[in-house]
Design a protein around this nucleic acid. Structure first.
Lengths: 364, 364
DNA sequence: TTGAAAGCGCTACCAT
DNA sequence: ATGGTAGCGCTTTCAA
């Protein structure tokens, strides 16, 4: 198969119609100031000649500096730190134009996010963000704000969770429902009778609620022999998670399986170890970071569901740049499959938890 | 965090040193015709000013049409067809310059590849490939050829398998050893005592041999209770696979687990079904395609290890373009983690087996 | 060895 | 409503 020989630019269209390239440009982009008739002729000819804009020329001419705000929580650092650094390296790798990143942090999901978002609206117009990357916590509290910001001309990209009822441009996240579902299938395959418990962050966060729904649904389908206990919310705090785990371990009968749906898993695992329950309770965790490695290697953790921050960052930035530069919205909603990390494939992911994630070579 | 205010181009360096931008360009790229002294001054100043080339301008000026040859086997189509179409869409999405793809096919791995490779060397110089994407079969037979092609100025990218002893520029593949290892871990978790069998393509193909090594090693570690039968080679042919499966099913004691390390799984699954062994033998397969879906949904297949052709294509093209345009070799060796697809996460991958993989939005 | 300048295709501005 | 043109930063050619 051979591709076409040569491709038409604005100049070719203009010549073919004996009009000026300025007019062609206006017509192609609907900038107005063109009669409906010529506009139609231009569009038709563009189609005929198979016009494809030269993006290098466009980028060079516009020479834009895209300014992107990034508002992410500090907690849980084991997820958001890699996400931040992946955003940084994805921005550096961007071809054709400069990306200026403005990182802002707040303590944790749902605490301080509203304040930061509000501040975005107050920015002087010469410092307006072209795009804003956020992880929405409770949609009820941020939907309206996100919509205002979007209407003020800043494209909003939700990462790691979503606020579907706001006017965000796009959303990138792991499919939360499926994450829960995988956890349930893995536990269902491994466990005999008994009850299983889940520890999550905060059920007002969409991502956390969806994980639980998926978990419950698949458990009911695939493992009628397992009972699901009421979900525990740790609010992504270490102490709470520890305390709640201890309480769970004191229940009789003791749960035989555990699904930890946020990266706040270490306190739980410590509590389990201290009560000498390691290996006796099957545990599925979320995400991947240094402190978790020994638990996977030892088999204390059956599997962890990795939310692929690098991939999320890459897609978020691709979405932003192709929207701002080409005007095309690639995919309003991306739902990634989490990586299922077991003992056998753990080595392949070790790159992701070291400093190497900052370097350029890492692709996923 | 605020990024730097403005960035230096060639012009700025030239002005700072009161020389012409032509000289600066020559010095920066070591094109010769520059005195060692000025070259050093330029390099130093570039460093000082934090020079970053404007890739849009470079692309515009060069306005290159990169010509890429793609030589992949027809069989097994369920893997290579998606790979081909992913290469096509990744090329279309490339910003800043044209990519001309030249697809060539041969019957199957190891049959006809040498002939096609040989033909590359005979191409007239004005039709030279800038890069060549191949899946090497038996390295003993292609290593020398690949090296010749590489030396003739065509960058070689291996996809789906590797020829590490050739002078290929880069290689992108699923980590084969780990794939085998995952299969073993999954079977080990599920099976009681018994023997397990593997059906592969051809053990001279590196990818196939590595899968087997990983499978055997992990089985020995994690499942001493399972015996591994000698590997069966189906040479990626349907009839052979069917026949060999029937033979396996007649063995006593009958194997309790099966690892199919290539996409040539349907004949095997059919044989198993016809012998009413579905669900009684745990099976791990490779890759994902329409015909496989019902087997996963029914539970006949415990899991399939998806080799992510879209991702491989994307990385291959990124590697090529950044090498040809920027002169940087991103990652000589990329080893992807296969996706472990179970019943619970299958829905997330359905996009990948429909026609949608041709559209632009799909990222993985 | 170095300088000067053209021009890649597009956008945007000014003129008509 | 349309035409004409400068200029983005780089590479390359021609001249000195």
């Amino acid at each position: 198969m051979q591709d076409s020989i040569k491709l038409a630019g604005i100049r070719e269209i203009a010549e073919a119609l004996s009009i000026s390239n300025g007019t062609v440009d206006r017509a192609l982009h609907g900038r107005g100031g063109v009669s409906a008739k010529t506009a139609a002729r231009v569009l038709k000819m563009a189609e005929e000649l198979g016009y494809r804009p030269n993006l290098a020329a466009r980028a060079l001419k516009l020479n834009r500096r895209i300014r992107i705000g990034v508002q992410l929580p500090k907690q849980i650092a084991s997820f958001f730190d890699p996400l931040r650094s992946a955003i940084r390296s994805a921005a550096t790798a961007s071809r054709g134009f400069q990306i200026a990143l403005d990182f802002e942090e707040y303590p944790r999901l749902g605490h301080g996010d509203v304040e930061l978002l509000t501040r975005v609206l107050g920015r002087p117009s010469d410092q307006r963000y072209d795009a804003l990357i956020v992880t929405p916590g409770n949609p009820a509290r941020v939907d309206a704000l996100l919509t205002s910001i979007a209407r003020s001309g800043t494209a909003i990209i939700c990462v790691a969770s979503d606020a579907p009822r706001s006017e965000r441009l796009a959303s990138v996240a792991v499919d939360a429902y499926t994450s829960g579902s995988i956890a349930a299938e893995l536990l269902a395959r491994t466990l005999p009778n008994g009850s299983v418990a889940t520890i999550t962050g905060d059920l007002t966060t969409l991502d956390h609620a969806d994980k639980l729904r998926g978990f419950a649904a698949t458990l009911a389908t695939l493992a009628p022999h397992l009972t699901l206990l009421t979900a525990v919310e740790s609010h992504d705090r270490a102490e709470e998670a520890y305390r709640q785990t201890v309480a769970l371990l004191k229940r009789r009968p003791r749960p035989v399986g555990l699904y930890l749906s946020t990266a706040n898993s270490i306190p739980v695992l410590e509590a389990v170890r201290e009560h000498r329950m390691a290996g006796k309770i099957q545990i599925v965790t979320t995400d991947l970071f240094n402190a978790l490695l020994p638990y996977i290697e030892s088999g204390d953790v059956l599997a962890t569901l990795y939310q692929r921050p690098q991939t999320q960052a890459k897609i978020a930035l691709e979405t932003i740049t192709s929207y701002l530069l080409e005007g095309t919205l690639l995919n309003p909603v991306t739902r990634l499959a989490p990586h299922i990390i077991l003992r056998s494939n753990l080595p392949l992911f070790l790159d992701h938890v070291t400093e190497r994630q900052i370097s350029r070579g890492v692709s996923f």
